[in-house]
Design a protein around this nucleic acid. Structure first.
Lengths: 348, 348
DNA sequence: GGTAGGTATTGACACGTTTTAATAAACCTG
DNA sequence: CAGGTTTATTAAAACGTGTCAATACCTACC
């Protein structure tokens, strides 16, 4: 007659203790430091755990310890395949340590970022992997003051006495793309940047300009910059209008987009106007998301180690959590140019 | 001189109370039911909160209430743009209620799903949105027994006395694709299914076969099924080999893929063999992810309301959380065929 | 047989919050 | 102004866990 009850009060460590005929403290020991407890009692406790289907309460646990067993992951937008891949890296690594990942989207809005940061503080998250909306590190510092260490994602420009960071060398990426285009003989290059001025976009542009200067040409003559509203294909498609403005004579010979989605949008936009890559215009993207290999023509792009980015960000966070006297490290990956069909030599 | 300390003990509700000269209970009231406390004291407390930069501790809160302020989202793979979009819908909606979303990937592995479910139980999550790996509802029921209600995502076949569910009519989707192909005159159709037998894939196939039967033809003659290892483009590309087996005579005239990624992979695979869609073979996808509109030719596909799926799953969960006498509802969306360039009339 | 030394277990408290029942104060009403 | 009613505040008791000093038990050694 006792099994008919719909919802019964949840079983706690005390119930297990009672069942096994030991004190709650011993049960806690079995769970957390099994070596301290004698074999026989341990088995007795483990059996009680099984029989009662006990599941431990992490609220209690983290109230006591002052630290929860989840970490935050704050990205600009999960929908962007770049972040999705990063997220998987973070989640896999966290999962191996039994940590849960709390996913937060900032949507590139500072206000939403702040809300998310606050949420993590309230949760007393063990730590956070953060891709900040802008260069303002106030939020990050505040969070750290609340006892939640953070690892910066894709922000190599921040001083490393603030936090660990994992990034990919954007300057090198920009240069790689630039050299490739210059070698192909292009002399007028448009750089399609994202909204506002994300540091990543700016640094890639600098890399591009550096590669132009290196070749002996004047960056101001060669490179033109256009900003788009968002980092998606639609924005790229729309931007084509502006890219082509000035007529066939002044039109660029190549477009370097700060993101694969933009690049794919550009290719589509060209098609709608009867033009195509690479015959009329070379197009280069950035990230090497899945999509890049699948469109026609295949997208020449600067590949970033996305999954590894997420994985190592999480690993850095873990090392900071475990190592008491930890000093921040700045980890920087090298990007790699992947040449596909969307770029070709310039034929006047 | 007090500001020099590196890490100070975190400020709690008691510190705020002391500072404001009231009892902790009153502070709690100010935070949770401001109307119960007199204007003057409320302001005093609010000031103390500001001055001390108090941030509430959700461990304590949820220990007391027995319920945390986060919800789980368990998907097969965030990397899949379909899920990413769903995730955004869930996260937006949860965020509006101040709930955090814990992201869990099962990777289609039952063991990982079980681990994730356990994690949610330990967290005493307020609820969960779950896309189960298979038809086994044991995990889900167990979670509910632990006091964590779940909403099923994309599983319309489960009895609604178990949980609410949100899905898209897969049978209708399969039929829509089938009718389209039949109207175009195709008489040999290959269905590219996912790994194992996911219910979604199976039901879409049934829809396809139903549309064939409806036209007066024999489904067994017209439809052939091939299973792929994964639901990604690479698998689609590889499957082309098998699709084309049997030579030009016996080769299908159309391929209906259970997923856009597969479809895009197929188109690519065809290209590598000197064939192309739709002139040699019509290709239909499923989901209408971003990608579908961007490849060349544009992919004809069955569109699902992804964001809305996530949003309404979360809304259903919220209504279950707030409404004490709640009865489960089964919400089913209608898919919509989006015709693009990858399908065309059959020309013998 | 007594004692030192070790091991296994316990009991009690602390973590930060919410809630409930009780108290104090103010306010009506006849 | 007594008695009743509302309003504002408080004190204390949970919630489930981890920790730590203290105790009980055992063994081995002199």
């Amino acid at each position: 007659m006792s099994s008919t009850e719909g919802t019964r009060r949840p079983v706690g460590i005390n119930d297990v203790a009672a069942r096994a005929g030991v004190s709650p403290g011993t049960v806690s020991n079995v769970l957390n430091r099994p070596e301290r407890v004698a074999e026989s009692t341990r088995r007795r406790v483990e059996r009680a755990v099984q029989e009662l289907d006990y599941v431990r309460n992490s609220s209690g646990r983290s109230l006591r310890s002052g630290r929860s067993d989840s970490v935050g992951l704050l990205v600009l937008d999960v929908t962007n395949p770049f972040f999705a891949e990063v997220a998987r890296g973070v989640e896999d690594t966290a999962g191996e340590e039994g940590l849960a990942v709390v996913l937060l989207n900032s949507g590139e809005q500072a206000a939403r970022q702040q809300r998310s940061i606050r949420l993590l503080a309230e949760q007393r998250a063990a730590g956070a992997v953060i891709m900040p909306v802008d260069g303002d590190t106030a939020d990050l510092l505040w969070l750290r003051k609340q006892g939640v260490p953070g690892v910066l994602l894709d922000r190599g420009d921040v001083s490393d006495d603030i936090a660990c960071s994992v990034s990919v060398d954007n300057h090198a990426g920009g240069m790689a793309a630039g050299r490739h285009l210059i070698n192909l003989g292009h002399e007028r290059i448009t750089y399609l940047s994202g909204p506002g001025d994300l540091e990543q976009c700016r640094t890639r542009l600098e890399g591009l300009r550096a590669s132009v200067a290196e070749s002996g040409a004047d960056p101001d003559q060669v490179v033109r910059v256009i900003h788009t509203a968002q980092l998606n294909a639609e924005s790229g498609e729309k931007a084509v209008e502006e890219v082509l403005a000035g007529g066939p004579k002044r039109r660029p010979q190549a477009v370097f987009c700060t993101n694969d989605q933009l690049a794919v949008g550009v290719i589509k936009g060209l098609g709608e106007r009867g033009l195509s890559a690479p015959s009329d215009l070379s197009v280069v993207g950035y990230d090497d998301v899945n999509l890049a290999a699948l469109v026609h023509p295949g997208l020449t792009t600067v590949a970033q180690p996305k999954y590894e980015l997420g994985r190592s960000a999480m690993e850095l966070l873990l090392s900071e959590l475990n190592d008491p006297d930890h000093s921040h490290v700045r980890l920087r990956f090298a990007p790699e140019l992947t040449v596909r069909g969307s770029t070709a030599a310039y034929r006047p």
